[in-house]
Every structure is written in structure tokens, then in C-alpha cells.
């Protein structure tokens, strides 16, 4: 991380390096180191594509760089960053500038736990995983968003509520409705256990 701080300190102020800019660059570097994985998971929950998720995280940090003078005013950096990433991925999804979902087989290998299960089981499980995610996409937007954010373990209900600009109770009820509806869809679709 220290090598990144020195690097960023150099490029953020090409003409001269002031103490403030060094602080800012170090802050951004620390943010990248600390939150890039979380933000990747947030982006991946919507994009379902590794490269797209990484692009979205990069774009989110570019926005952070653009508004770096506001960094000192932010109370909860995690929520702020997740919200930026969330907006980025929703924008990209809306514009339809996404690659096909799960086009990268390596995504599965990174997602799947490397237990002692047989390869056949994992493939079947991946198929079911894909079918369940396809059903998740059929949920209403509010319920779907709450459910997807709840999948990211690093985020508490309060933080999800802050990202979605609603209350905790609303988030809980949305997640509950989403799960109930998803269960009903699974029942209807007859996805085998």
C-alpha cells in the first residue's frame, strides 16, 4: 500500500506536492485497499460478470477522485462508496452496456468454495445458482435491490438502508417479501432441490 501512496502522491499533483494533496492521495489509496473487494462484490451482485464489476469499481473510484475535496465531509465512507458503486452499476445496467452475464467460467471457480465436492455436483450447483439468480432478476426492483445488497456480508441493514435511502424496517420488510416471493417462484418453477 505504501508504494501506491507514493505513486498516487506523484500523479495527483504533477506540478507540486502539497501536504493536503498527499493526504488526499493517501486517503484514496487506503480506500482502494480497504473497500475495493466489498465494492467489487456489490457490483458483482448486479453485473454477474467479473470484468464488468471491476470496471464499475474503477468508475466508482474515478468519481471519488473527481470529488476528492469532499472526502473530509463524508461521515461513513463505506456507505458513501457503496452508494457510488451502486449508482454506477444501476446506470450501467439501465444503459444496457453490460456483457453477457456469467460469460467467464473463471467467475465460478472464484465463487465456488473449493471443498471436497465432486465436479459434477459443482456444475449442477452452478446451474441451480444461475437459475435462482435469474429468478431474483424477476423480482420487483425495490425487493431485488434490498436482497442483493443483503447478500454482501459486509453491509449491515442500517448501511443498506442508507444506501437505498430508506429505513431499516423498510429494508427488512423488502428482504422478507423478496425471499417469500423468490421461494414462491422456485416452487412454481419446480427447481429441484
Amino acid at each position: 500500500m505504501s508504494s501506491y501512496s507514493g505513486q498516487i502522491a506523484g500523479w495527483m499533483t504533477p506540478a507540486f506536492t502539497s501536504a493536503t494533496s498527499v493526504d488526499t492521495s493517501e486517503t484514496i489509496t487506503a480506500l482502494v485497499a480497504e473497500y475495493s473487494s466489498t465494492l467489487y462484490r456489490v457490483a458483482y451482485s448486479v453485473m454477474r460478470n467479473s470484468a464488468e464489476a471491476e470496471d464499475a469499481v474503477q468508475e466508482a473510484f474515478l468519481r471519488v477522485l473527481k470529488h476528492r475535496d469532499k472526502l473530509s465531509e463524508i461521515r461513513d465512507l463505506r456507505v458513501w462508496l457503496v452508494r457510488i458503486t451502486w449508482n454506477v452499476v444501476l446506470d450501467r445496467k439501465r444503459r444496457g452496456k453490460t456483457r453477457p452475464e456469467n460469460d467467464d467460467i473463471a467467475d465460478y471457480t472464484r465463487v465456488l468454495p473449493s471443498g471436497d465436492r465432486r465436479a459434477d455436483d459443482e456444475i449442477i450447483s452452478s446451474q441451480e445458482y444461475g437459475r435462482i439468480l435469474a429468478l431474483v432478476d424477476r423480482l420487483p426492483a425495490k425487493e431485488r435491490q434490498a436482497l442483493l445488497l443483503s447478500a454482501v456480508e459486509e453491509l449491515s441493514t442500517a448501511q443498506i438502508a442508507s444506501v437505498l435511502k430508506t429505513t431499516e424496517s423498510s429494508v427488512r420488510s423488502r428482504i422478507f417479501r423478496a425471499r417469500r416471493e423468490l421461494s414462491a417462484l422456485l416452487e412454481k418453477e419446480g427447481v429441484s432441490q
Binding site: S36, R41, E54, A106, A151
Partner: peptide, 25 residues
């Protein structure tokens, strides 16, 4: 549902994602 969501929520980025983000910045 829990299993699917857990799998979705534990996706790991490719190696060197931080370096790529820093390079982009």
C-alpha cells in the same frame, strides 16, 4: 436461497484489482 446469496456475496475479484484501479486513477 441462502446458499445462492452467499455465493453471490462472497465473489472475489481477480488478483491485482487494487493495482489496476490505482493504474486507472
Amino acid at each position: 436461497i441462502d446458499r445462492a446469496l452467499r455465493r453471490l456475496g462472497t465473489a472475489a475479484p481477480r488478483e491485482g484489482v487494487e493495482a489496476r484501479i490505482v493504474a486507472k486513477l
